[in-house]
C-alpha cells in the first residue's frame, strides 16, 4: 500500500471520529478525540503497519480550554511513512488511555509526559516519574512553573533551589540582525 492508500483506509474506517486532517510538507496529521485513541492506535499498528512508535509530545496551552494537547508520532517501517495523531485533554480530566500495551516503547514516553506535564495515563503498568524523583511536588514543563525552578526538599533524596538568573534568561530576540546583535551579552562591553 502506498502512503495515500494508507491514509485513505484510515479515513474510511474512522471517518466520523477524525476531527481534522492536515497535510504540510509531506507530513500528515490527524486530530482525534481522546476516547478514540486506542481504537485508532491498534488499527494503525495492525492494519496500516505503523509499527514504530517515535514519540509522545505534550503541549501546555495555558489559558486555553482544553489545556493539554498530546501529539503521537508514528512511523511505518515497511512503507517509510510518518503519521501524527493529535488529541486534546482538559485539565479536569487530566488523563488519557495508555498505548503502552500496543507499542511497548510508549511506556517510558508516557512516564516522561506524566513527569513533566502531569498528564496521567489510564492502564499504564508503572506510571511514576522518570526524570525527576518520586515525590517531587511540581510538574516542571507546565507554563505556570517558573523558568528558574521552585524550592523543594526531600531529606536524603534530593532538594531543589531557585536558580539565580543574573540579568534574566538570555534568550534570542527575533530579528534579522546578526547573532552578535540578536543575542544579549551578560556583560555588555564598556564603551
Amino acid at each position: 500500500m502506498s502512503c495515500d492508500e494508507l491514509f485513505e483506509s484510515l479515513s474510511k474506517s474512522f471517518g466520523g471520529k477524525i476531527q481534522n486532517k492536515t497535510e504540510f510538507c509531506g507530513e500528515t496529521t490527524y486530530t482525534i478525540a481522546a476516547s478514540d485513541l486506542r481504537e485508532i492506535a491498534k488499527f494503525s499498528r495492525d492494519k496500516l503497519s505503523f509499527d514504530y512508535f517515535l514519540d509522545i509530545t505534550s503541549i501546555d496551552k495555558f489559558g486555553e480550554e482544553p489545556r493539554f494537547e498530546i501529539v503521537y508520532h508514528l512511523y511505518s517501517m515497511p512503507h517509510a511513512v510518518h503519521l501524527r495523531l493529535k488529541l486534546k485533554v482538559s485539565e479536569d480530566v487530566g488523563a488519557v488511555d495508555t498505548v503502552s500495551d500496543i507499542w511497548p516503547t510508549a511506556n517510558w514516553h508516557e512516564r516522561e509526559a506524566y513527569d513533566m506535564m502531569g498528564i496521567k495515563f489510564n492502564g499504564h503498568p508503572d506510571l511514576r516519574r522518570i526524570l525527576m524523583w518520586d515525590g517531587y511536588p511540581y510538574f516542571p514543563l507546565r507554563k505556570d512553573f517558573p523558568l528558574e525552578g521552585l524550592p523543594s526538599e526531600m531529606p536524603d533524596v534530593a532538594f531543589t533551589k531557585i536558580t539565580p538568573m543574573e540579568g534574566g534568561p538570555f534568550v534570542t530576540l527575533p530579528s534579522t540582525a546578526g547573532s552578535k546583535d540578536r543575542e544579549p551579552r551578560a556583560h555588555p562591553p564598556e564603551l
Binding site: 526524570l131 525527576m132 516542571p140 512553573f145 523558568l147 528558574e148 525552578g149 521552585l150 531543589t160 533551589k161 536558580t163 539565580p164 538568573m165 534568561p169
Partner: peptide, 16 residues
C-alpha cells in the same frame, strides 16, 4: 557553577 544549565534541575555548582 552549573554551566549553561540555569534550570530547575541542575545544581548550580558542586561547591554548594
Amino acid at each position: 557553577t552549573g554551566g549553561m544549565y540555569r534550570s530547575y534541575a541542575t545544581l548550580q555548582g558542586i561547591d554548594q
